[in-house]
Amino acid sequence: MNRLQTSIYYLQELKYRLAYAIFGTIFLFSTAYTYKQGLIFIFLPKGLSHFVSTGLTEIFFTYLQICTIFSFSFGLGITLTQLYLFLRPGLYAFEANTIFNLLITAFLFYTCLYIFIFPIIVKMLWELFLTYSQNFTAIDLTFEPRLHDYLTHLQQLNKALTFSFPCLIALNTVQIYTSKQTWVKYRGIAYIIAFSLAAFITPPDVLSQTLLGVPLIVCYEVQLKFWSLYEEYKKQLLIRQPIKPHKYSNRNKEKS
């Protein structure tokens, strides 16, 4: 009977935790939809005066798309936090501390990523592709950006940045059980796995696969480079470490 009551208690707590996550996501969606125009204005490139809409319901579904992405991105963080609070009483102290530090690291990582790095990447890509549209002089070509297409490209970039942190965690986990020579030897297989994963996640077009596959490869190469620098640092540290006299030699000197 006590076991049944305990199970019912934990199921109720899990239900409440999930309810908090669901209502939190709904609240975020309603807030984002209230300020939908200001939210879109944040992601617009500087110097752009207008966008083009070709469908009757395109603006409405574009608003729904950006509000859904925004609410589910933050709602996933709320869900993971509630899941951690539910599992924390049954975890060991080191497990709870590891998961807590991982959540804090993920929060700081994504905060810095979307505040500092994401606008820079968007600006660079916009200026890069805008030059091709302006330098086309064979015919009278006018560039009319479409709002839905622009936000779709931002969504693909968001996918690539979202999977960067789990990929770094996975690479660090694999690094514990492998060596650097193995990473260098099977580098080509890692590239194939990155593009296969990108093809599985993204829509079936080359641009989406490239936008997700290339950052995965960059994470792999950055991890390998940091690994090499860390090993070089340990070698230099061992070389510069002073040699301590042996304790038995000191005793012999004292006796003499």
Rank of each mutant, 00 (worst) to 15 (best):
K225A: 15
K225E: 09
N252K: 14
A190L: 11
V214T: 09
W227V: 03
T202N: 09
I243M: 11
Y230W: 05
R240V: 04
L207I: 09
V222E: 09
Q241M: 11
R187P: 06
A198F: 02
P215H: 04
Y233G: 00
G188T: 10
Q223S: 10
K225H: 13
K253L: 15
R187C: 13
E231T: 13
V222M: 15
K225C: 09
Q236C: 09
G213A: 11
F195P: 00
L212Y: 02
C219S: 08
Y230C: 01
S249C: 10
K244W: 04
I189G: 07
P215V: 05
L224C: 00
K253F: 12
R240H: 11
L224F: 01
N250T: 10
P203R: 14
K235T: 11
L224Y: 07
H246F: 12
I189P: 05
K247D: 14
Y220N: 05
V218A: 15
L238G: 10
N252P: 01
Y191K: 02
V184T: 00
W227M: 04
C219A: 13
I193S: 03
W227R: 03
A190K: 03
E232S: 12
A194V: 04
V214Y: 04
P242D: 06
T202P: 02
L197N: 03
K225P: 03
V218N: 04
I192W: 06
I243D: 12
V214M: 07
F200P: 05
K234M: 12
V184Y: 02
L238R: 15
S208L: 01
I192G: 11
L216S: 03
N250H: 12
I217V: 15
A194P: 01
L197W: 01
P204I: 06
K247C: 07
I201L: 09
S208Q: 00
N250P: 01
V214L: 13
T210M: 14
P242N: 05
P242F: 04
I243W: 06
K247N: 15
L207W: 01
Q223G: 07
L229G: 08
R240E: 11
Y186Q: 14
F226H: 08
T210V: 13
V206D: 11
L197M: 10
L229E: 12
Q236G: 12
E221F: 05
I217T: 06
K185L: 07
V214E: 05
V214A: 08
K253R: 13
Y233R: 06
V214K: 01
S228E: 15
Q223V: 00
L224M: 00
S228V: 08
F200C: 14
E231S: 12
N252W: 11
Y230M: 06
P245M: 06
W227A: 04
K225T: 06
K234R: 15
L207G: 01
N250Q: 13
T202A: 10
E221G: 02
G213T: 04
Q209N: 07
L216N: 01
I189M: 07
R251W: 14
L197A: 07
G188R: 05
K234G: 06
Y191I: 09
L207S: 03
A190R: 03
E231N: 14
Y230G: 03
P204E: 00
D205K: 02
V218D: 04
G188F: 11
Y191L: 13
Y220C: 08
